[in-house]
């Protein structure tokens, strides 16, 4: 291990050195089973509701707000509301939560 580290340091930034010294990661970098949203209701409950059901942000549920408007606000933010990246809420999940919010009577 020590020799490999030394070699990596000497070799600088070559890919070969990196690959030789990636023993730790190689063991564990199997296909990821990271987190994924279940549906729009879950995203609403675990992100939006903390402000929009708590008198922090305006009420947005059951106002039949256009889904396209909701998607734009989520990605752009609005004043103090943070913008949410596709890495946090992917496009498909964003469409689901926008649909959830824009329905006439979504249950929370």
């Amino acid at each position: 291990m020590k020799k490999l580290k030394l070699k990596a340091a000497v070799s600088g930034f070559l890919f070969t050195a990196i690959l030789m010294n990636s023993a730790w990661s190689a063991q564990e970098e199997k296909p990821g089973t990271g987190f994924a949203w279940k549906d729009g209701a879950e995203i609403y409950a675990k992100i939006c509701a903390y402000c929009h059901e708590a008198n922090v942000g305006p009420q947005i549920r059951n106002r039949e707000l256009p889904a396209i408007y909701i998607r734009a606000i989520v990605r752009n933010g609005s004043r103090a509301m943070p913008a949410f990246r596709s890495s946090e809420i992917d496009d498909e999940s964003l469409a689901k939560v926008a649909d959830f919010i824009s329905q006439k009577a979504s249950q929370y």
Partner: peptide
Amino acid sequence: TLTEFSLYNWRGGG
């Protein structure tokens, strides 16, 4: 809880 974000409503404007 994200209730502390109420602070951002105090002056508004983000």
